[in-house]
Design a protein around this nucleic acid. Structure first.
Lengths: 137, 137
DNA sequence: TGTAATCATACTGTTTTGGTAGGTTTATTC
DNA sequence: GAATAAACCTACCAAAACAGTATGATTACA
């Protein structure tokens, strides 16, 4: 049931960027240093965030990344789903999955469906902006 | 974020036993056949359930397993926690974990704590008895 | 004493996870 | 137009987790 480090790191990157707004683009190196995460590892994470439309990347000198939306418009659930592929607690609830043959007789499906809903509702009611303003110190 | 097959199978075993009550002890072979799961694999799962006090095992001829409590007294959350070790979505929320050095400054901890609560509340409000009565066909 | 069951231990193959390395392309600046 | 700093791309690797199998010892009952 653990969220992967990819998911957690992605949230830290987006929160970091929301906390350090910039006119232009922020190079990944800067974020990696602030967060104490390997820049090379972050590359693969950030790549996914660009593909999912949460970040914009610009190449070349003075390039880097910037948020594609305001922090208020980025739900935590969307970030985690982007990184994990799905938020579903069991694979039969993942989209594009063929229907389970046991479905009609399954004793646990309603319980899983409810859990899925509870998790999704919680995570989509929480945005990156909330993360920033909730933070410590 | 997926629940392991161990957790899912454990729920199926307990639900199966609740649905097929017996005076004495039910041999694992019977449950494995009804559920279409390898008996050998179930052995390791059931062993954990005994250790966690959810099942009682009896050796020898006419032996088997029986529920240690009524289905109403077995919350789904307890079953899953027994199998997964913890229900926490991030390891810093697991019990017996040394406090994270970033804790005071962590932007995401309150969000994770809330998620943990939401999941635990949901899963502990659902019992094996509910699974049985919710079921299909 | 035979038998049917739990219990214990060890092993194995596959997938996922977390991470590294090296090179290519692109945009800016001098 | 060359140097540079950045994103981007591909490949690889080690360790851990997962799902499952195999073998054998122990126990309780008939």
């Amino acid at each position: 049931m653990l969220v992967s480090t990819r998911g957690r790191y992605a949230l830290r990157v987006l929160t970091d960027m929301a906390e350090h707004p910039s006119e232009g683009y922020t190079p990944l190196k800067e974020i990696a240093e602030r967060q104490g995460i390997s820049e090379k590892y972050l590359e693969s994470i950030v790549k996914t965030l660009v593909q999912e439309g949460l970040l914009l990347g610009l190449r070349g000198k003075c390039g880097g990344y910037r948020l594609a939306k305001t922090p208020e418009e980025i739900p935590v659930g969307e970030v985690l789903r982007s990184m994990e592929g799905s938020l579903a607690p069991v694979s039969c609830l993942e989209e594009g999955q063929p229907a389970c043959p046991r479905e009609a007789d399954c004793r646990t499906l309603p319980m899983w469906t409810g859990l899925d809903r509870v998790i999704r509702d919680y995570l989509n009611g929480y945005t990156v902006a909330d993360l920033v303003s909730a933070g410590g110190i």
